[in-house]
Amino acid sequence: MTLTQSIARVALGTGLLLLIPLTAKLTMAEMAWSPGDFVAAGIMLFGAGLTFALIARMGDNTLYRLGAGLGVVAGLLLVWANGAVGLVGSEDNPANVLYVAVLAVALIGAFVARFRPLGMSNAMFAASLTYVVVTAIALFVWKPTGAAAEPQVALVNVLVANGIFAAFWAVAGLLFRRASTIGSHSGRQLV
């Protein structure tokens, strides 16, 4: 499949996915998305889809593509959840800004590894570890008890949700590690 075809498929998929919240907005009074919300969702979905299409072209086996898909989904969910409800406390909690470091580690690691499977594996494991460290720092900054606490957010919920997100990055790392053992050739070009 050519790059142009991949971009067209991503654009079509983004449009179809946006029909879900549009239908909800038209049929449910509680759906409070503004036009800006649709634009932001479209940019995130199209960006994630395009990122996957470009990275998936770099490997020649299914495990590499699964690792790329899971890594992209982990990044998309990180951005979406952090913007929508926040990963520690509410979306207004300044500690949530720290999670940008996870994306930076994953992206910089992928470029340094030149998208080779073993290097991608290391980048995903580093992103998972960064996620755990950022969560610990954020929880240290955000006090879950006392007068300034956000009582609607239980500490256990924060730990479980962040543990699941960290696991996404780790599983992506395992998939890339496995892809490297079966001989993925990553000498392909992005374009």
Rank of each mutant, 00 (worst) to 15 (best):
A84W: 07
A40V: 13
D60T: 13
A84E: 10
V88Q: 14
L45S: 05
G67R: 06
L45I: 12
V39F: 15
G71C: 08
G49A: 10
G59E: 09
A81E: 07
A40T: 15
L54S: 11
A53C: 07
L78P: 00
I43G: 04
L50T: 12
M58Q: 15
D60V: 03
A40M: 15
G69E: 14
G67D: 13
G71Y: 01
N61K: 13
A41F: 01
L45Y: 05
R65F: 00
A74C: 04
G47E: 05
V73M: 11
I43R: 06
A40G: 11
G49W: 06
L87C: 06
V85H: 14
F52D: 15
L70A: 06
M58L: 15
A53E: 13
G47L: 08
P35S: 10
A41M: 09
L45W: 03
V39E: 05
D37E: 02
R65E: 09
G75P: 06
V85F: 04
F38W: 04
L66S: 10
L87I: 11
L50H: 06
A56W: 08
R65H: 09
V73T: 05
V39C: 08
G83K: 02
S34W: 00
L70S: 02
G36Y: 00
D60R: 12
L70P: 01
V72L: 03
R57V: 01
A81H: 02
G83I: 01
Y64N: 07
L66I: 09
T51F: 07
A74N: 05
W80D: 00
I55C: 03
G36F: 09
G71A: 15
V73F: 14
L76G: 06
N82P: 00
F52K: 09
A81P: 00
G59L: 07
P35R: 08
L76M: 08
W80Y: 14
P35G: 12
G67K: 06
R57D: 12
I43L: 15
D60G: 14
G36T: 08
W80A: 15
V88H: 13
A81Q: 09
V72S: 04
L66K: 08
A48L: 03
R57A: 15
V73C: 05
N82I: 00
V72H: 01
R65G: 02
T51M: 14
G49F: 10
L63Q: 11
G71V: 00
P35C: 03
R57I: 03
M58P: 02
G47Q: 08
I43V: 15
G69H: 04
I43W: 04
F52E: 14
F38V: 08
L87A: 05
G59H: 04
V85I: 14
L45K: 02
T62F: 11
G71W: 06
L54A: 11
A68I: 05
V85M: 10
A53R: 04
A74M: 00
V85L: 08
A68L: 05
G71R: 01
W80E: 01
G42K: 10
G83Y: 01
D60F: 01
